[in-house]
């Protein structure tokens, strides 16, 4: 058994196992609900939280982040609810719309199906990290110019996906772009303009 496993066992013990081991809580199980609730809100709660969370070190938009989170926290919810990087959107929470698209080590992925802990040691880029200071990324410029959005909610995901579409070499024709952008739903229906924007960036030859 390697060290990682041992380490995991220490830090990732489930709440259930913890409760089994906790004599205090075992005793409380025999006492009225209100007392248990009060106790859980108190010190036991804090202990339980500490044991239920695990450390995560991940670089997001070039900034090293060290947080403690429950294993069930997705990358999407980590970004939105804890780091307040709300540019990454929740559209379905099930990998069916692409609004949550971010880059992990340069690859576009659905952050809603990515458990945050699996990004340990990786580089995550979100829409907030795409521009160079006040200078928009060429894809952001092209979306603006071609009006590649309406309500704007799917837009960060579209742009993150579009950047990879070119980097992957899948933006050679409008048909290819349509296929390789089909993981990003736009309900306002801006596809026609989005394809124009991507083709424009591709043909412009700027580094994406």
């Amino acid at each position: 058994m390697d060290d990682q496993l041992k380490n995991g066992e220490h830090t990732g013990t489930s709440r259930r196992s913890f409760l089994k081991k906790s004599s205090l809580i075992t005793a409380l199980a025999l006492t009225p609900d209100t007392v248990i609730k009060a106790a859980e809100k108190g010190i036991d709660e804090q202990i339980a939280s500490a044991i239920e969370t695990m450390p995560l070190n991940v670089t997001i938009n070039g900034v090293k982040q060290s947080v403690r989170i429950e294993p069930r926290v997705t990358l999407l919810d980590l970004l939105r609810e804890r780091l307040h990087l709300t540019g990454t959107k929740k559209g379905c929470d099930h990998g069916q719309c692409g609004a949550c698209t971010v880059h992990v080590d340069g690859q576009r992925v659905n952050s809603c199906l990515t458990l945050a802990l699996t990004t340990e040691g990786r580089n995550v880029t979100t829409i907030e990290g795409l521009a160079d200071g006040d200078n928009l990324h060429p894809m952001q410029e092209a979306f603006l110019e071609h009006d590649g959005f309406q309500c704007g909610y799917c837009t960060p995901g579209q742009i993150m996906s579009a950047v990879c579409c070119i980097r992957e070499g899948h933006a050679n024709t409008p048909e290819e772009v349509r296929e390789y952008m089909s993981g990003n739903i736009c309900r306002c229906g801006a596809y026609s303009n989005i394809v124009d924007a991507i083709m424009d960036v591709k043909q412009g030859g700027k580094k994406v």
Binding site: G87, E128, F149, G152, T155
Partner: peptide, 17 residues
């Protein structure tokens, strides 16, 4: 171009949640 487009393409536009 949309006057609020920059907020939308940079992720700065804030929706209710």
């Amino acid at each position: 171009n949309r006057v609020d487009g920059r907020a939308k393409v940079t992720g700065k536009a804030k929706y209710f949640a």
